[in-house]
């Protein structure tokens, strides 16, 4: 109770102080104007404000598009010149509409992009990029043998995915999304990863996938 009374009392005197502060603040702002800082650049497109955190799957969706941009597929990966670029999502889809938003108006390797969602293994081989959700990342060996011979870039949502032989793994650390790459696994599928992608990876593994080990 005493605290409350003190609090009220101080709030009253605080109000006085703020009145004084108001006048001072005006002077401060005047000083700012006097500094003559003129803002020259006007708004461009909105960007994530630094420090303003994003939904991880909005970021991962954007990463998938970038992985596709930085990977070269052999010509035989596409049935014809007009075939779309297929992004597959295996298992329960954590993206919701975020992946659809990410590919809106996007062309990859000069092709329109479509999303296919697959309930489970066997995963169809027509996906060029396959996102493996949390419920299937532990079934990597089965997946590798299913997809052997296909030209599929396999991206797993698990920290150890690339280390265990997957091609690209999402790694969430210190509040941002990072990724690791397994070069040997991508090579086996005949995919060429751009060096820019490799440079930005947290780690580049060179061990082959377990499934392709003799």
């Amino acid at each position: 109770m005493v605290l409350l009374i003190q609090c009220l009392r101080a709030h009253r005197s605080g109000a006085h102080s703020r009145l004084g502060a108001g006048a001072r603040l005006r002077r401060l702002l005047l000083g700012v104007a006097r500094l003559g800082i003129v803002v020259l650049i006007l708004a461009g497109h909105p960007l994530p404000v630094r420090g303003q955190a994003k939904d991880p799957f909005v970021v991962k969706a954007a990463f998938l598009c970038n992985f596709a941009k930085f990977t070269e597929w052999p010509a035989e990966a596409f049935s014809d010149a007009k075939a779309p670029f297929v992004i597959g999502v295996l298992g329960e889809d954590p993206f919701g509409s975020k992946l659809d938003a990410a590919i809106k108006g996007l062309e990859l390797h000069g092709r329109p992009v479509v999303i296919r969602r697959f309930a489970g293994i066997p995963a169809p081989k027509e996906a060029h990029l396959l996102f493996v959700g949390a419920d299937f990342v532990r079934k990597l060996e089965q997946l590798e043998s299913e997809l052997r011979g296909s030209r599929t870039l396999i991206v797993g949502d698990a920290r150890t995915f690339a280390q265990e032989g997957g091609m690209i793994a999402f790694v969430e650390r210190d509040g941002a999304i990072h990724f690791e790459v397994n070069l040997a696994s991508a090579d086996t599928a005949g995919l060429k990863l751009n060096s820019g992608l490799l440079k930005l990876a947290d780690h580049v593994y060179k061990n082959p996938a377990k499934a392709s080990n003799p």
Partner: peptide
């Protein structure tokens, strides 16, 4: 069922960002 999850109005996209920029984006941890 994920495929039928109602899309939120004006879902945000960051696909215009480069890889370098994406690595800088802070994410919420669920």
């Amino acid at each position: 069922i994920p495929a039928t999850a109602a899309p939120a109005a004006a879902e945000e996209s960051l696909s215009h960002l480069s890889l370098e920029e994406l690595l800088q984006v802070k994410v919420t941890s669920v």
